[in-house]
């Protein structure tokens, strides 16, 4: 008994001591990047995509991001399917045919590869044929494919360690899955003048959200906004336009929503079926519990 008690006391003592020590910084360089949560329409366990927002977001992608980034896992037909931007099929056909990054097909009868306009079933390509060509263009940097970028990014927790378990519980109960979108939005909004003492590398920009803060991508969306939704593709003002105004924040928010959809196109179905499944499971569990009570009613246990 004595032995166990004293060892217990020793362990407790060590625990207390270690709690008083500061924890080592997690990220290299020791700076915590705090990324704020954003109010996404598709957030949580009940959120769904906002079709209009996805349509606006696609415009931002087309007018801004496409210059460097492809979306090879998204086909033009996906822009038509339910649960996405749901553009009109004929409009997307025309869009595909006029997409300036052509599809390489072939070989033809002469054994040569050839370029042809995209069809509905073709992927949405960026300007570069392959990684080497992209790196050559961008001084060694690679603009990543944006098809699943929102799923491929996350936010590292910066809260004190003893709160982690509560944050975990909160995230699980609220169905928080939007860390990637939050990060991307923060990145698009994160271009700042470098603080004093920071020397940027050649061709690099300062970004508050990017790990290490030096990013090769120049600020994609201008401070006053880059895409004016109230004008159509030819630049004419649309009559009776009632949507949101052009702003950096709005552009960033919309394109992030669009990319979130691209990374997880089944989200609407998933949550709808999820609620049906949850309802069914709750009812059945409750019924089974009552049935179990009924069966065990006369057996004490």
């Amino acid at each position: 008994m004595f032995m166990t008690k004293s060892s217990l006391r020793a362990v407790l003592g060590a625990v207390t001591l270690a709690l008083l020590q500061p924890l080592p910084a997690e990220a290299a360089g020791g700076d915590h990047i705090s990324i704020a949560k954003q109010p996404w329409s598709f957030a949580g366990f009940s959120g769904q995509y906002d079709k209009e927002q996805l349509q606006r977001g696609f415009r931002v992608y087309r007018d801004v991001c496409k210059a460097c980034h492809g979306m090879k896992r998204i086909a033009f037909r996906n822009l038509v399917q339910p649960g996405g931007p749901e553009f009109d099929e004929e409009a997307v056909k025309a869009l595909a045919a006029s997409w300036d990054n052509k599809i390489t097909d072939g070989p033809n009868e002469k054994g040569k590869m050839f370029e042809r306009p995209a069809k509905l079933s073709d992927p949405i390509l960026g300007p570069h044929k392959n990684e080497a060509e992209a790196r050559d263009t961008f001084n060694g940097a690679l603009p990543p494919d944006l098809s699943i970028i929102v799923k491929a990014r996350t936010v590292e927790p910066t809260a004190p360690w003893y709160t982690h378990i509560f944050l975990m519980a909160r995230d699980i109960l609220t169905g928080y899955q939007e860390a990637g979108a939050d990060y991307l939005y923060a990145l698009l909004m994160g271009y700042k003048d470098p603080p004093a003492g920071v020397t940027l590398g050649d061709g690099m920009s300062y970004n508050a959200a990017f790990p290490g803060h030096q990013i090769a991508m120049v600020q994609p969306i201008q401070t006053e906004g880059s895409v004016d939704y109230s004008k159509d593709d030819s630049g004419k003002a649309m009559a009776n336009y009632a949507g949101p105004k052009m702003s950096m924040e709005q552009n960033a928010r919309d394109v992030t929503a669009f990319l979130a959809w691209a990374a997880d196109p089944s989200l609407n179905d998933r949550k709808r079926i999820g609620w049906q499944a949850m309802l069914y499971l709750l009812v059945t569990t409750f019924l089974l519990y009552l049935a179990k009570k009924r069966i065990w009613a006369r057996v004490k246990h």
Binding site: Y280, V283, T284, L287, L288, L290, A291, R294, I295, W296, A297, R298, V299
Partner: peptide
């Protein structure tokens, strides 16, 4: 008692049917 565990009970049948 264990001879007669209410297994024909409507509630039990309903629960089994749901499952």
């Amino acid at each position: 008692e264990i001879e007669d565990p209410n297994r024909r009970d409507v509630l039990v049948l309903a629960a089994n049917a749901f499952a």
